[in-house]
Amino acid sequence: MTELFARIGRSSLSIFERLGNGTLFLFQILMGLGFGFKRPTLVLLQIWAVGVRSLSIIMVSGAFVGMVLGLQGYNTLVTYGSEESLGALVALSLIRELGPVLTALLFAGRAGSALTAEIGLMKATEQLAALEMMGVDPLQRIVVPRFIAGLFAMPLLAAIFTAIGILGGYFCGVGLLGVDAGAFWSLMQQHIDLIDDVMQGVVIKSIAFGFVVTWIALYEGYASLPTSEGVSQATTRTVVNASLAVLALDFVLTGLMFH
C-alpha cells in the first residue's frame, strides 16, 4: 500500500517537475523573442518548414471535412425542411470548432512531431552542444525562430482550413444536393458575426493552439534523452500531449467565448 502511494507521489512529482521545467523553458523563449526579430530570415525558413509544408494536408483535410459536413448536415436538415440553413450549419461548426481544432491536431501531428524529432536529433548528435561551445545560444538560434513561426503559421493554416471547408460544404450542398446558393450564403451571413465567431473562433483559438502545440513540441525536443529511443519517445509525447492540450484548451476557450 505504501508502495502504491510512493509510486503515485513519485510520478506526480515528475509531472510537476516537467511542468516546471516547461514553464521555465517558455520564459526563456519569451525572453529571447527579440532575437527572432533581429534575424527574420531564420523565421522565414521555419515558416516554410512548419507552415508551407503543412499546407497540402491542411487543404485536403479541410475540403473533405467540409464535404462531409455538407452531406451529413443536409441529411439532418432536410428532415425538418430547413436545408437552406446548411450554409449556417457548415460555417458555424467549422469556424467555431472544427477549423481551429482539427487544424491544431493536424499541425501537432505534421509540424509538431517534426520539430521535436529535429531538435531531439540535434541534441543527440551534439549539434546543440556544438552551438553552445561556438558561443551561440541554441535557445535563441534554434528554438526562438521555430516558436515564432509556429505562432504565426497556425492562424493562417486554420483560416485556410476553414475557408476551404466552407467551399467543400458549398460544393456538396449546392453543387451536388441542390440547395439554393443564395440561401446558403445569406443564412450563413445572418448567423455568423465577424468579431464573435471569426475573430474569436478562428483567429484567437488558433493562436492559442499554435502557442501550446509549438511550446510542447519544442520543449519535448529540447528535453529529450539524447538517444534514438529518447527521441522517438519524445516525438510520441509531443503528438499525444499536444493533442490532449488542444482539446482541453478548446473546452475552456469555448466556455469563455460562446455562452
Binding site: A153, L156, A159, I160, T162, W185, Q189, I192
Partner: peptide, 19 residues
C-alpha cells in the same frame, strides 16, 4: 504564397461568410 493564401482565407471569412 502561403501568407497571401492565409490572408485571402481570412478575408473570405470576413467578407463572404460573416455579415
Amino acid at each position: 504564397l502561403f501568407v497571401s493564401l492565409g490572408l485571402a482565407a481570412l478575408l473570405m471569412l470576413a467578407l463572404k461568410v460573416a455579415n
